[in-house]
Design a binder for these strands. Structure first.
Lengths: 162, 162
DNA sequence: CTCAATCCCACGAAAACCCATTGTGTCCCG
DNA sequence: CGGGACACAATGGGTTTTCGTGGGATTGAG
């Protein structure tokens, strides 16, 4: 598999009083080039205290990947269980939300809590998917490379100065 | 992998008051022969105080390489973390910017600061990618071969004389 | 009736677009 | 061989469009 359109770049956007956030235009561009949906899928990230996000087309692709994995090792009972667990995580533990004509979603409260997102949302492209962080949590996480934290600090400054 | 079109040559261009720079035509030629995009990807160089730049096709190639590496050792948790970190650096810590019909990009402020670029940008082809330097920093760097500095000095003179 | 989600409009800042000028190198034709 | 005519690159400036964001109005479900 090789997706030809990849998520790239970073942005820091505000979450307003109603819980709305603008999805950065450069990410929306990728979503709409991959498929024609104006929708994103949100999930808790497996490793980091942030959210993982992608487009519906990628969700379908991920599902197909799981299916293939199952067929390869269908004899093992362990594999069966793992498949069930993964499948649950991939679909039940996610939320699909549309964005409006101005590119904003209404942040689902559950996801907002899971991602511990306050009134600032840091978007980070990671190729096939992108991440949404509470910038403060990213700065605190020891596993995040310093260069990336610099970017987060820059985005915060950019906003604070104005 | 072997890219058939390589970046080579040097040029010194001005960054105007709006933060715009012309990408030298000979570099644009390579970009457009590698793929049909009219955009470049900017990243902080890992070793030098300058920026590294390439075309989206090369970014995709780099991504595919990472993916293959992961599949080989996906069992190890260490490998998973390292994969996440690399992916973040490769995509979140970079910016993709389009150039207009006259070949200019708008220099993203974050990258401009990371590369310490003032009002002159020195472009250096390095094969698969190219670099963008503040010419003064290049002249000061002890690791840069004297012959290359001569080129930088020549480009500066060329401009200063006119 | 009430609360909240959706829609619609409005605004300021920034980015993308368009056009105009200059300089340089190239090609062709006298 | 010389001298335009020409094409294209780099740059400056102005104008239009888009983006992120705030604030109502409208709808719809409980």
């Amino acid at each position: 598999m090789a997706l030809e359109h990849l998520f790239q770049g970073s942005a820091l956007n505000a979450v307003d009083a109603k819980g709305r956030v603008s999805i950065p235009a450069f990410l929306r561009g990728v979503i709409e080039r991959r498929g024609d949906a104006r929708t994103i899928v949100l999930a808790k990230h497996e490793a980091f205290p942030c959210l993982s996000a992608y487009d519906p087309a990628y969700a379908a692709l991920k599902h197909a990947k799981l299916e293939r994995l199952l067929e390869k090792e269908e004899t093992s009972p362990d594999a069966q269980l793992e498949y069930q667990q993964r499948n649950l995580m991939a679909f039940a533990a996610t939320e699909e939300v549309p964005y409006d004509s101005s590119g904003r979603i209404l942040f689902p409260p559950m996801m907002r809590r899971k991602g511990q997102i306050g009134d600032l949302a840091l978007f980070l492209g990671t190729g096939e998917t992108f991440q949404i962080w509470n910038p403060e949590l990213l700065l605190k996480d020891a596993r995040i490379p310093e260069d990336l934290k610099d970017i987060a600090r820059f985005r915060l400054e950019e906003r604070g100065a104005s």
